[in-house]
Design a protein around this nucleic acid. Structure first.
Length: 405
RNA sequence: GUGGGUGUAGCUCAGAUGGUUAGAGCACCAGAUUGUGGCUCUGGGGGUCGCCGGUUCGAGUCCGGUCAUCCACCCCA
């Protein structure tokens, strides 16, 4: 038997219904916030991610589905959504229009990782990206959108917030941190690696021993420049005013190189180790890094696979079941179904069965109304109808059946 | 890439110390007097015991390998 590749999964009912339910809801809310749909290719030139996400990240370093295509191009299946949207934004010269653009997208992302709970090699994200708006009100709006999506599905979360500084204040901090780290003894092997590759990543190390050591490390918040500081505190004020609960997490260091200033993450206690539901932040330098006009930007991405685990979705009774007691009756309900299906969901049973068997199937199919044509009804162009919820039953003319709601 | 757990029916799982036609519950299908669902009862279909090899008179059970899957590390949504 041929099976799906490792880390690739099929999304079939009832999960697929939940998937659509989520997309529809998230989409609607994003539109309410002024975002418009954008679709970009799943396949991009490898260098796009090397330049945006950064070679120091594991995503680019070892998790990319990368290959040379038949034309000799070095390509990858996108490991994340932002880079492609930014590329598109620049390619279509939207950076020169001096306007604000807001996009949302959803679809598959690919990372060659070892699968575990909440983590797949092909996974789905719903993301939003806002370009050209430098105001911290936009950061706040995005967080409110994220919150509103989670709230809509009654998902409990914790919101973690941090500021990563800007090109003015982050580098001096990094220098100071590296100096501190080189004086540290006994940090774990991973941290030693991070020290060389991407020093601020040591901050969210899970090793308790390391965390103990880093208690005396220099703090990024002490290095924030006045502008970063002011924006960060304004953001907190705005969120408080809107009744959003959050916690400052100085160790929240997002993994992608392009983040600046605001970084946030919605996490869930109900997932496994992979507990990030939404991750996002500001990336004011990315457009320029990829060759566009300097354009402030902020965005986030939702892990759809993870959020689906937390969404309760129960389908109520809906639609009609049509059956017949004998072959002649099947001809009648076949035509009847065609007409009824113009406006309603109809399950049609092709096989003549006993009334009892029909009712049993109809009940299992969770329809609200059953219509059966038997010997009597066949003679009089009528149909026997029973509502499975109210238990009310009646015999009505076939035309009347089409008017049922 | 590293560590640990698990692979028996569509699903959840039983099958001490190797021994005959491999079981249960749920689900599915059909019946329980004639045209009335959910409950109950009866019957039925469905398994190369992940795969390959080894030990043995005999392997679902023991050994080796392999693959898959889950959980965690790493990393991230």
């Amino acid at each position: 038997m041929i099976k799906a590749l490792r880390g690739m999964r099929d999304i079939l009912p009832p999960l697929s219904k939940k998937y659509l339910y989520f997309i529809n809801t998230a989409q609607k809310l994003a539109q309410n916030y002024g975002f418009e749909y954008i679709q970009t290719p799943l396949l991009e030139e490898t260098s796009l991610f090397k330049r945006s996400v950064g070679e120091s990240s594991d995503i680019v370093g070892k998790e990319m589905y990368q290959f040379i295509d038949k034309g000799g191009n070095d390509v990858v299946l996108r490991p994340e959504g932002t880079a492609g949207v930014v590329r598109s934004f620049i390619e279509h010269k939207l950076d020169r229009q001096g306007k604000v653009f807001r996009f949302y997208y959803f679809g598959a992302m690919f990372r060659y990782e070892r699968p575990q709970r909440g983590r797949f090699r092909q996974f789905y994200q719903f993301g939003v990206e806002s370009f050209g708006e430098k105001s911290v009100y936009e950061d706040a709006s995005l967080i409110l959108l994220g919150k509103s999506i989670l709230d809509r599905f009654h998902i409990p979360y914790r919101l973690k917030l941090n500021s990563l500084g800007c090109p003015n204040c982050l580098p001096p901090y990094k220098k100071e941190l590296v100096k501190f780290l080189s004086s540290c003894e006994g940090i774990c092997e991973d941290c030693k690696r991070r020290r060389e590759l991407n020093p601020i990543r040591v901050l969210d190390c899970k090793n308790p021993n390391c965390q103990e050591i880093y208690k005396t490390a220099p703090k990024l918040k002490d290095f924030l420049c006045p502008e970063c500081q002011e924006d960060f505190s304004k953001l907190q004020t705005l969120l408080k005013k809107e009744g959003v609960e959050f916690e400052i997490d100085e160790n929240l260091v997002r993994g992608l190189d392009y983040y600046t200033k605001t970084a946030f993450e919605f996490v869930s206690e109900q997932l496994g180790a992979q507990n990030a539901l939404i991750g996002g932040g500001r990336y004011d330098n990315l457009v320029e890094m990829l060759g566009g006009k300097p354009t402030p930007a902020v965005g986030f991405a939702i892990g759809i696979d993870r959020i689906l685990e937390l969404i309760e979705y129960e389908e109520g009774r809906e639609g009609f079941y049509l059956g017949a007691l004998d072959k002649e009756g099947v001809e009648v309900i076949f035509s009847l179904a065609r007409k009824k299906r113009e406006d309603s969901k109809v399950f049609l049973e092709y096989k003549p069965k006993s009334l009892k068997a029909h009712l049993k199937s109809a009940d299992k199919l969770k329809v609200t109304t059953v219509g059966i044509v038997g010997e009597e009804e066949l003679k009089s162009d009528t149909i026997w109808v029973k509502n499975l919820v109210t238990k009310k039953e009646e015999v009505i003319p076939l035309e009347k059946f089409l008017e049922l709601g």
